[in-house]
Design a binder for these strands. Structure first.
Length: 285
DNA sequence: AGCAACAAATATC
DNA sequence: GATATTTGTTGCT
């Protein structure tokens, strides 16, 4: 896959962007200028602008705009109706917002325990740093971000399927990596197959997440209401956090009721990065 | 027991 | 008054 004419992975750009976002999220109070941010990221202002724009599809200023609390509140304003509308539209007909189309099947822990399941995994570049992808026989089962150590990341993922056997094979997972992170592959006629392994409650939460369009957001309590457990917001939070197929199942589009980012298993900076990147993709579409 | 929550109550400026 | 901080409740693993 190294000789494949794929679009530039932008992984190197992400390192710069990540540093910038971390700086911004700790210094937003003193309204840092682009020059200051560029300096923190270790690049000249003009080079920084260029790298950033290439990665995000947005200028740093527009990106900042896209990840403020105010903007988050805007996204949330009619998040409840977003969930309702998504079910009505379904996968038929062109939706206004392009997104990754997905078909899924659910498996309870008991189901997959029956067969001696072997999961294949591989490591690939992405716009948000290196990812690990887990493939089950019937579709994609997991996606996680590598922060530093591949071993630790694999262990983190493997913990979710304690009975499964793991075998590395990057050639199996490479096609998933390509189509997940390249919007050109996001077409309803070639949906991505995913396998969700979890309890009934978890799977219902993850299914609901799949109906939140790119560039939009929802809240833990809205999801709770949507699945008919209006008081289970906290349990929803736990289930969202246990989502094994991050990015594909958009757990990064779940915010606190007041627009706060709350948590992200793979780091809040990365959550912000994905939200901002998606804002850029939506604008491009 | 432990959570990636939330709303209402209370304290603080 | 507007905003922090605390407290009680909540459902699922």
């Amino acid at each position: 896959m190294l000789d494949m004419p794929a679009p530039p992975p932008a992984t190197a750009d992400y390192a710069v962007v990540k540093r910038a976002i971390e700086f911004i999220s700790t210094h937003w109070r003193d309204q840092p200028s682009i020059d200051e941010i560029a300096e923190q990221a270790g690049l000249s202002p003009s080079h920084f602008q260029h790298v950033f724009k290439r990665w995000a599809g947005l200028t740093p200023k527009a990106f900042l705009q896209a990840i403020t609390i105010e903007r988050a509140r805007e996204l949330l304003r009619d998040s409840a109706t977003v969930l309702d509308a998504a079910y009505d539209v379904g996968l038929s007909g062109p939706s206004r917002l392009h997104d990754l189309f997905v078909t899924h099947e659910a498996l309870t822990p008991g189901d997959y325990r029956r067969d001696d399941l072997t999961l294949q995994y591989g490591f690939h570049p992405s716009p948000f740093g290196e990812v690990i992808i887990i493939a089950a026989p019937r579709g994609m089962a997991g996606l996680g971000f590598v922060d530093g150590d591949r071993e630790a990341t694999l262990a983190d993922m493997a913990r979710r399927w304690p009975r499964a056997r793991f075998a590395r094979d990057d050639t199996v997972t490479a096609p998933y990596a390509r189509r997940v992170f390249d919007p050109a592959f996001w077409r309803p006629d070639t949906p991505l197959r995913v396998v969700m392994i979890g309890t009934d409650f978890e799977v219902r939460v993850w299914e609901t997440l799949l109906t939140v369009p790119m560039g939009r957001a929802t809240t833990y309590s809205d999801i709770a209401r949507k699945i008919g457990r209006p008081k289970a917001a906290r349990a929803v939070g736990a289930a969202v956090g246990r989502n094994p197929i991050s990015f594909v199942v958009p757990c990064h589009r779940v915010l606190g009721r007041s627009g706060g980012l709350t948590g992200y298993h793979w780091g809040l900076a990365r959550k912000q990065a994905i939200i901002g990147w998606e804002a850029g993709q939506v604008r491009a579409a």
